[in-house]
Simulated scan of single mutants.
Amino acid sequence: MEFISRQRMFFVGSAPLSGEGHVNLSPKGYDAFRILSSGEVAYLDLTGSGNETSAHLQENGRITVMFCAFEGPPNILRLYGRGEVVLPGTEAWSELAPLFEELPGTRQIIRIRVDQVQTSCGFGVPLYRYERDRETLVKWWEAKGPVALQAYWREKNRTTLDGLPTPLGKKLQEEDALKVP
């Protein structure tokens, strides 16, 4: 837990059940990762150009989170588990959202039940020095605003590269159906 709390970056891996589907690997930054208990973690998922992880979790639940020591002694730590997507407006959202700083472009929270933890040496991971978080993503969403965010979700985050529906996409579809006279 101490090692995780010192890391400023982590990677998330997921994949669809189909052997033809794309494996997804996403780097994550900001102060967006929380340890909920010894067997449960969560991260704040910000809007990006894709929404692969959420659809993979909806389909099969499998997820891996990896932390690498880029400073200090070498280490790689992987959390293997089953994840779920927590969307705004749900009871789970009300429980988890206060644990995170509210950031523009927040899309969902990914909650993971960890079933295995593995470490490896990390001897081949280079040393890097942390400067600061990039401000680009937050500034971009601040400039766009909530209406543009919703439009972006409708255009880019409803399905995966492989055409799998995302939980956010299903929610948007339900909202759109309510608007039709």
Rank of each mutant, 00 (worst) to 15 (best):
G89V: 11
L137G: 13
L25S: 05
P126C: 09
N51R: 05
R8V: 04
T119P: 01
E2C: 02
G61D: 10
G105T: 08
P98E: 08
T159M: 13
F100I: 05
T90F: 11
I110A: 12
L99K: 10
P16S: 10
V86Q: 11
E84H: 06
V180D: 13
V114R: 05
F33A: 02
H56I: 11
L57C: 07
S120D: 11
A92T: 13
M9S: 14
I4Y: 07
I35K: 05
T106H: 07
A69T: 01
Q150L: 13
P104T: 04
W140N: 08
E20F: 02
L79Y: 14
T47E: 10
E84A: 12
K156F: 04
E2W: 06
E95N: 04
R154V: 02
V86F: 11
P181M: 05
L17F: 04
P104W: 03
D133K: 01
V23I: 14
F70G: 00
E135I: 08
I63Q: 08
V180F: 12
T160V: 11
K139L: 14
F10P: 06
I110E: 11
M66A: 11
D115A: 15
N51F: 08
L137A: 12
I109R: 00
G13F: 05
L149F: 06
D162A: 07
Q58D: 15
G72Q: 03
E40K: 08
L161I: 10
P167D: 15
N75V: 03
L172S: 00
K170R: 15
L96A: 02
G61I: 12
P73R: 15
Q150R: 13
G50I: 07
L137I: 11
A92D: 15
E59S: 01
T136M: 12
E40P: 00
E71K: 08
T160E: 08
R113M: 14
G163S: 13
G124F: 03
P73S: 15
T166V: 09
V147A: 11
F11L: 14
P98H: 03
I109N: 00
E71R: 08
H56E: 09
L164M: 05
P98D: 08
V86H: 10
Y80T: 06
Q173V: 10
P181W: 01
L103S: 12
W93A: 14
T136I: 12
Q173A: 15
M1V: 04
E175A: 13
A177E: 15
R34M: 05
L127R: 09
M66R: 05
R129I: 01
V65C: 14
P98Y: 06
A143S: 07
D31Y: 03
S49H: 08
A69R: 01
E102L: 04
N157V: 00
V41K: 04
F70R: 01
L127H: 09
I35L: 09
P165M: 01
L17E: 10
Q118F: 13
G61N: 09
K156E: 06
R107W: 02
D133V: 04
F33M: 04
R8N: 11
L149E: 11
L161S: 11
A143N: 05
K170T: 15
M1R: 10
C68H: 09
S5I: 14
N24G: 04
L77N: 03
F33C: 03
Y43A: 08
R129F: 03
Q150I: 09
L36T: 01
W93Q: 14
R34W: 06
M9L: 15
G61P: 12
K144V: 01
S54Y: 06
A148D: 02
L161N: 09
T136F: 12
L127T: 07
R8E: 07
I112P: 07
R8S: 07
